[in-house]
Design a protein around this nucleic acid. Structure first.
Lengths: 182, 182
DNA sequence: CCGCCTTGTTGGATTGCGTCTAACAATACA
DNA sequence: TGTATTGTTAGACGCAATCCAACAAGGCGG
């Protein structure tokens, strides 16, 4: 996806490696008790490097989702129908650190943090969707409301999928159902 | 509202005083450039005291809204109809630090912070409303979606009201319109 | 083989939030 | 005049996040 550079020093780590190290530690010690230094120490890089990969400690769980959200938002801005763009977010999503954090939120002591970050992601989607709906002629207020429903549907579907206490339906199906509920 | 204690040292400040000091400084220097120490210095109390009044720097803008949200959530839990409980949030809201921050977001350099905090408040409402809707028999997914629309309506109405570039309609009217759009 | 460019890593310093604790101050009340 | 209660304060602490200058490691053209 992102173009590979032709020269320069090769990376000593990756988002995936750091993400896995972080998840292990979160399960062992909890989120709060795990410092960024802990994560980088286990991953074998320096603390400074962490912020070359993520912009914040909490982002370590969300980089997969954020990539898909970025793609979906790009589609939105290009004019793709709203429902299609939002479905695309779910299509590209794989079980990763986020899904693991959702199912093990209690063990990680991460519920509050997860709520906060989920809220931020949902609102980001809402803003983009509302902008699109308003551009398509909706009242500003109505656009916000409808966008609120749509973005809530996306995040709720992700949660239902990750935290599959009930039979493991696919994310695409769950997302389709959630969007159709709008 | 909250019962006054009969004994003990009287408070040396108040949320309002701190909130006003903070707003002044945010307008003068911007949000990021204003430290908690700056706020308490202007308000004439020590830095330690700040956290007796607010649990975080950003809460200095939201205490008015949070009070109303708490009241609305309490109504929700008591069984008040959802639309009534949400309308009540708007009924008790006065033009305060939050409204000022919304209209002067650029001058304060506070847009990102405001987005974050708005997202958190909206999601808190969404959770409570969804819980109520699910309790009333809705599918979990459908409850989340509808709650997403309703909570988005509340926050959108507050924004439209605070940022009254258009004719100054009352918050109650704006909120009623937003809720009816669901 | 040698400089050069580019990208990435590293350590160290800095700032400020948020937490905590122990000591102290001011009030009501018995 | 004590005593309980409530609030204030200074100080220290841990940690997230930013910034910077120095260094490392690759490709590439001479």
């Amino acid at each position: 996806m992102t173009t590979e550079p032709r020269s320069g020093r090769p990376r000593a780590s990756s988002r995936e490696v750091l993400s896995e190290a972080a998840c292990e530690l979160f399960l062992e010690q909890g989120y709060d008790a795990t410092s960024v230094s802990d994560i980088t120490r286990r991953a074998g890089v320096s603390r400074s490097s962490f912020f070359n990969y993520f912009s914040a400690k909490s982002d370590v769980l969300w980089s997969g989702f954020d990539e898909q959200a970025d793609a979906g938002i790009a589609l939105l801005r290009e004019g793709t129908p709203v429902a299609d763009a939002l479905s695309a977010i779910g299509r590209g999503l794989a079980p990763d650190a986020l899904a693991l954090a959702i199912t093990n939120a209690d063990a990680m002591g991460i519920a509050a943090e997860l709520d906060r970050d989920r809220a931020v992601r949902q609102f980001r989607l809402q803003r983009e969707v509302a902008s699109r709906l308003a551009h398509d002629g909706a009242t500003p207020l109505a656009a916000q409301v409808r966008a609120g429903a749509l973005s809530a549907a996306v995040l709720a579907a992700v949660w239902a999928w990750a935290d599959r206490t009930a039979g493991g339906r696919s994310l695409a199906d769950t997302l389709a159902e959630a969007l159709s509920a709008v």
